[in-house]
Amino acid sequence: MIGYVTLGTNDLSAATAFYDALLAETGARRVWEFPRGVAWGVAPDKPSLAVMAPFDGNAATVGNGVMVALVVDSHEKVDRVHARALELGGKDEGPVGARGEGFYAGYFRDLDGNKLNVFCHG
């Protein structure tokens, strides 16, 4: 149902470098590139994640209560992606670990303050 998610950025170069390095850990690669933004994905028929300067020219802001969840296939990848986000300058919003039965996740904010998590089931 979801085609793509867009996160606003005020520094496209920094955001692109952050997500190039971070999303490489999940197997994603750049699927779109244009002057205002970049998107990453794993396949054309799967949802993608984009960072973009706002179309209206105003500053990008963080949506309160908005979060993007990145799915991976193992606890080890959750650990690795979360750690990589912090190495790249992201802010920890909740350490990796079990969050209920069968759900393992870690939470972080990117360089613009957007909240994400990385998770797996099982």
Rank of each mutant, 00 (worst) to 15 (best):
V68D: 02
E101R: 09
V62C: 10
G102T: 08
G89S: 06
A85V: 04
E101P: 04
R84I: 01
E101Y: 00
P35K: 11
D92S: 13
N64I: 15
G89I: 12
R36V: 09
A59S: 11
M52C: 10
V51I: 13
G41W: 03
D92A: 14
A69C: 12
E76P: 06
G94Y: 07
E25H: 08
A28C: 04
V62L: 03
G37H: 07
A69D: 14
D45P: 01
D45W: 02
F55L: 15
V42W: 02
F55D: 14
R30C: 02
V81K: 03
G63E: 10
K77E: 11
D92N: 14
T26H: 01
L88E: 04
A53V: 14
P54D: 10
V78T: 06
A85R: 04
L88G: 05
G97R: 10
V66S: 11
G89Q: 11
E25C: 09
A39L: 08
L70E: 05
T61M: 09
V68R: 07
E76N: 11
E93W: 11
A59N: 08
K91P: 01
A24G: 01
W40I: 08
A98K: 10
L70K: 11
N58M: 11
H82M: 01
D79H: 10
D92K: 08
A39D: 04
V81Y: 04
V68K: 11
R80P: 03
K46T: 13
G27K: 06
V42R: 15
G89P: 01
V51A: 00
R30Y: 00
D79W: 00
H75T: 15
E93S: 06
A39R: 08
L86V: 11
V51Y: 01
G37P: 07
T26R: 04
D45M: 04
V68Q: 03
A83Q: 14
W40P: 04
R80W: 03
A43M: 01
L88Q: 05
G94R: 07
K77C: 00
A28R: 02
V42M: 13
D56I: 10
R29M: 07
A28I: 09
D56M: 09
T26W: 02
W40V: 11
V62H: 02
D56T: 11
P44G: 07
H82W: 08
L86Y: 01
A53P: 00
G94N: 05
R36S: 14
K91D: 01
V81M: 06
E87Q: 13
A60D: 09
A60E: 09
A43G: 12
L86S: 01
E93Y: 10
E93A: 13
V81L: 09
T26E: 05
F34G: 12
D56W: 00
Y104E: 08
P44E: 13
G97E: 11
W32E: 15
V66H: 03
E76Y: 08
K77R: 14
A24C: 01
G63K: 10
M52I: 03
V81E: 03
M67Y: 02
V62F: 02
F55M: 15
P54T: 12
S48V: 05
